[in-house]
Amino acid sequence: MKKVLIVETNVTRYQGTKEPTGLWLGEATEFVEEMQKVGIQVDYVSPKGGFVPLDPRSMKYTDESILSIYESEDFVQRALTNTLKPSQINPEEYIAIYYTGGHGVMWDFPKDTQLQKIALAIYNNKGYLTSVCHGIAGLLDIQDERGKYVISGKNITGFTTTEEIIAGKKSVVPFLNQQVAKKHGANFKKKRFYSEYAVKDGRIITGQNPFSVKAVAKLLINELKLENLL
């Protein structure tokens, strides 16, 4: 069976500040755990390849399942130390691409044309575009061959403006996901802040916040089962 490609950030700080950020740990590990349950293999890629920093705040929201993945040699080596570069990826090997969050992605996901080409190739090959929380930033600027935003007319979700205000980062981030999604023609959906919520529209599956990871993973798994790909 084809694999799932997990995208992570290389950004270590909120740009223009000394405050650290990076990957929100649970948004990777909880997804990986669900993939492992059904035997789906994953690879990890980042815009620059190599090292992926962890958002220190995400360590406050761990449990035994998150830590068990985090402590595994495979995750340490492939997800945090030696992620693949976009140039090393063959889109034909993947049935889905999954964009993790953490505020760092706001700076290196949106304009990465190599990752956009990979995502579009997977999508055009009847694969799935998936994301959670700030990871939606990786989907916002993807355009098809006609220059149309892939999210245009689609029901999607991601970290909301309200959640950004509550997190105290509205004045720090370079843009607001909710705002850009609407600008690019998407139907942005949301539920109460920090509550689990995931949306599927065709082959695009998105989750609102860090508490929505498993919901995204389960929606993807269900779709793959319906297509007899599992």
Rank of each mutant, 00 (worst) to 15 (best):
G127F: 04
K60Q: 14
E163C: 12
Y197M: 12
G138A: 14
T83N: 03
A137I: 03
D201A: 07
I6R: 01
G49A: 11
K48I: 02
A198M: 09
V180F: 09
I69W: 03
I204L: 09
V180T: 12
T83Q: 04
A96H: 05
G127M: 05
N10M: 08
Q179T: 15
L139T: 02
D43H: 00
K170S: 11
G158L: 09
E73C: 08
Q15V: 14
T113A: 13
E34H: 06
A217W: 00
K148G: 06
S87F: 00
I69H: 07
F75D: 06
L176W: 10
T21P: 01
T21L: 01
E33Y: 14
G168Q: 03
T17Y: 01
R192T: 11
V216N: 08
Y128L: 05
I204P: 08
L115S: 13
T162P: 06
N187S: 07
F31Y: 08
N228T: 03
I205D: 04
K3G: 02
L226R: 13
Y14T: 02
N209W: 01
L54P: 12
F211P: 02
D144L: 06
T17G: 00
C133T: 14
K18G: 00
F188N: 13
V173R: 11
V76Q: 15
A181H: 09
Y70K: 05
K200C: 06
S65K: 06
G102Q: 04
P210E: 03
P110T: 02
Q208T: 09
T29N: 12
S212H: 11
N90Q: 09
E30R: 13
N155G: 04
I136S: 06
S58W: 10
G135L: 12
S72Q: 15
N177D: 10
L25F: 04
F211T: 14
K126G: 07
E33C: 08
L25V: 11
K169G: 10
K3N: 07
H184S: 03
L115N: 14
P53G: 13
A181I: 11
M35H: 13
E34Y: 08
G138R: 10
Y98L: 01
L139E: 04
K3W: 01
Q178K: 07
S72A: 14
S87N: 05
F175Q: 10
I66Q: 02
N222P: 03
N82H: 12
T9E: 00
K85S: 05
P174S: 03
G16T: 05
Y94N: 01
H134M: 12
L129E: 06
A119P: 07
G102E: 03
F211L: 15
E163Y: 11
L129W: 08
T100W: 04
V213R: 10
V45M: 01
S212A: 13
G138Y: 11
I204N: 10
L5G: 00
Y94G: 00
M35G: 12
E30T: 07
I142F: 10
Y14I: 13
E19L: 13
A96G: 06
G26A: 11
L25K: 06
G104K: 00
E64G: 04
G39K: 15
S65T: 07
Q208L: 11
Q41G: 14
K2Y: 03
S68W: 03
